[in-house]
Amino acid sequence: MQEFISAFFGDYSVINGYVPLFIFLLVALGFAGGTLIAALIIRPHKPYPEKLAPYECGMPPLMEAHERFSIRFYLLGILFLLFDVEAMFLFPWAVKYDALGLFGFIEMMLFIAILLVGYFYAWRKGALEWA
């Protein structure tokens, strides 16, 4: 694989590690786009009003599908963002885990424990509930 990559892209240290990722991305995009285009070419196209309705049987829609969301989602969003930042700190730790050893493990458990206090606070205060 490495020779194959070097043959096409030369000896660039950064890019080499990411070429498989890039090829993966291209294949994924190509598959999604290719499927849509192929379906557009192959499928028959005979629309009529009943077929285009969202539900062929059942009651007609009463209001628009776009609705204003509850403010509760926003609180969950903020909590998600904070735990996302925590996950961000876990990433270099996981990469360097071998070198850091037990010291790094204890240190990270302390970090998580402090944030766990916030999690239990949110739980206790009912921030995660819908009632």
């Binding site: 903020i78 925590e86 402090i114 916030g118």
Partner: peptide
């Protein structure tokens, strides 16, 4: 500073809950 960052995150979390729960 790394451990203090977790305290900062905790403060942000509690602040968000206090402010948002009162509004809800």
């Amino acid at each position: 500073p790394f451990e203090v960052a977790s305290i900062l995150l905790l403060a942000a979390m509690i602040g968000a809950i206090v402010l948002a729960k009162r509004t809800i």
